[in-house]
């Protein structure tokens, strides 16, 4: 299963490298770096498990810090044109996540999966996604949804974090008590990843179209 996951992540990374190459935005650069990091993390986790036969959870525990940072930055980047002075909200959300994360590390240790921190991050990210759509609807600006980088990027995030609610809720219970359901959770995560990376790839195409439109209009 992790091979399929890795393949999805590589495709998305390649799409980002190709379609965001003309985009000199800070966010486009972070996207490429982040997706590169996703691939590196996935390979490291895979290798660590393979060669040491020990839990690779600590790798993912480090990775989620960057994941939430990137997603928060992305959401802030896309809401900026519609809402001025939104930065404190996004910084606060990230610090709430960090506080819960550190609490988890101190109480449960760094080698246990930080499920509470991930749950809190999911709730905050879903809230910020809905906040983006609320401001998008309220704004006087007219956007073409079909070609909107922001709309699709946030849609992918909303699908992934809202859709992973059940996964997050059941993960702890199932890992410890119901190993028979483990496989279904893996499939769910695979589906969610496919949705996330699929829609993100489409959003990169939208960004490329927008860039082409901008350069052709000069």
């Amino acid at each position: 299963m992790s091979e399929v996951n890795l393949l999805l992540e590589f495709i998305c990374f390649a799409m980002a490298l190709y379609f965001l190459k003309g985009n000199n935005d800070k966010f486009a650069l972070f996207t490429k770096l982040y997706l590169g990091l996703v691939c590196v993390t996935e390979i490291s986790g895979f290798m660590w498990k393979l060669y040491t036969n020990k839990s690779n959870v600590w790798i993912y525990n480090i990775y989620i810090l960057f994941e939430v940072l990137y997603v928060s930055f992305g959401l802030y980047h896309f809401i900026k044109p519609f809402k001025k002075n939104a930065r404190p909200l996004y910084i606060s959300a990230y610090f709430v996540f960090i506080a819960v994360y550190l609490y988890g590390v101190f109480t449960r240790g760094a080698f246990k999966f930080q499920t509470t921190a991930i749950m809190v991050a999911s709730v905050l990210i879903v809230f910020l996604c809905l906040y983006y759509y609320y401001n998008l609807m309220k704004s006087d600006k007219i956007i073409s949804i079909r070609n909107s980088f922001g709309f699709w990027w946030v849609a992918a995030v909303l699908f992934f974090y809202f859709g992973s609610t059940v996964y997050n809720l059941f993960m702890n219970v199932i890992f410890s008590n119901k190993p028979f359901a483990y496989e279904i959770l893996v499939y769910i995560m695979l589906t969610l990843n496919a949705i996330l990376y699929g829609i993100w790839s489409y959003s990169f195409i939208c960004s490329s179209r927008h860039q082409k439109l901008l350069t052709s209009s000069y």
Binding site: F159, F162, G163, V166, Y167, K178, F180, A181, I184, T191
Partner: peptide, 13 residues
């Protein structure tokens, strides 16, 4: 349990 997980995930999607 598997059915509940699948159903709930579908609802959340």
């Amino acid at each position: 349990i598997v059915n509940i997980i699948i159903l709930a995930t579908c609802v959340f999607l």
